[in-house]
Lab assay of single mutants.
Amino acid sequence: HERALMVNRLQKLTRMLRVHPDPKWKQEQQELIKRLK
Results as ranks from 00 to 15, higher is better:
residue 1 H to L: 13
residue 1 H to G: 07
residue 1 H to R: 13
residue 1 H to I: 11
residue 1 H to E: 11
residue 2 E to Q: 10
residue 2 E to F: 12
residue 3 R to G: 05
residue 3 R to A: 04
residue 3 R to Q: 07
residue 4 A to D: 08
residue 4 A to F: 09
residue 4 A to G: 05
residue 5 L to N: 09
residue 5 L to C: 15
residue 5 L to S: 11
residue 6 M to H: 02
residue 6 M to K: 02
residue 6 M to L: 13
residue 7 V to E: 08
residue 8 N to W: 14
residue 8 N to S: 14
residue 8 N to T: 14
residue 8 N to Y: 12
residue 9 R to A: 03
residue 9 R to N: 02
residue 9 R to L: 07
residue 9 R to G: 03
residue 10 L to E: 01
residue 11 Q to T: 11
residue 11 Q to V: 13
residue 11 Q to C: 15
residue 12 K to T: 11
residue 12 K to P: 00
residue 12 K to M: 14
residue 12 K to D: 08
residue 12 K to I: 12
residue 12 K to V: 13
residue 13 L to I: 09
residue 13 L to V: 06
residue 13 L to T: 01
residue 14 T to H: 10
residue 14 T to V: 09
residue 14 T to Q: 08
residue 14 T to I: 12
residue 15 R to V: 10
residue 15 R to Q: 15
residue 15 R to L: 14
residue 16 M to P: 03
residue 17 L to D: 02
residue 17 L to P: 01
residue 17 L to K: 00
residue 18 R to W: 05
residue 18 R to L: 13
residue 18 R to G: 07
residue 19 V to R: 13
residue 19 V to D: 06
residue 20 H to P: 00
residue 20 H to L: 08
residue 20 H to I: 07
residue 20 H to K: 14
residue 21 P to G: 04
residue 21 P to N: 12
residue 21 P to T: 06
residue 21 P to A: 09
residue 22 D to L: 12
residue 22 D to H: 12
residue 23 P to F: 06
residue 23 P to R: 04
residue 23 P to E: 05
residue 23 P to H: 04
residue 24 K to V: 13
residue 24 K to S: 09
residue 24 K to L: 08
residue 24 K to Q: 07
residue 26 K to H: 08
residue 26 K to S: 06
residue 26 K to L: 09
residue 26 K to N: 03
residue 27 Q to Y: 06
residue 27 Q to A: 11
residue 27 Q to R: 10
residue 27 Q to V: 07
residue 28 E to N: 02
residue 29 Q to H: 06
residue 29 Q to F: 13
residue 29 Q to M: 15
residue 29 Q to T: 07
residue 30 Q to L: 13
residue 30 Q to R: 12
residue 30 Q to N: 07
residue 30 Q to E: 12
residue 30 Q to W: 13
residue 31 E to M: 10
residue 31 E to Y: 09
residue 32 L to H: 00
residue 32 L to C: 00
residue 32 L to G: 00
residue 32 L to Q: 00
residue 33 I to T: 03
residue 33 I to K: 03
residue 34 K to F: 12
residue 34 K to Q: 10
residue 35 R to P: 00
residue 35 R to W: 12
residue 35 R to V: 09
residue 35 R to Q: 11
residue 35 R to K: 14
residue 36 L to F: 01
residue 37 K to S: 11
residue 37 K to N: 11
residue 37 K to T: 12
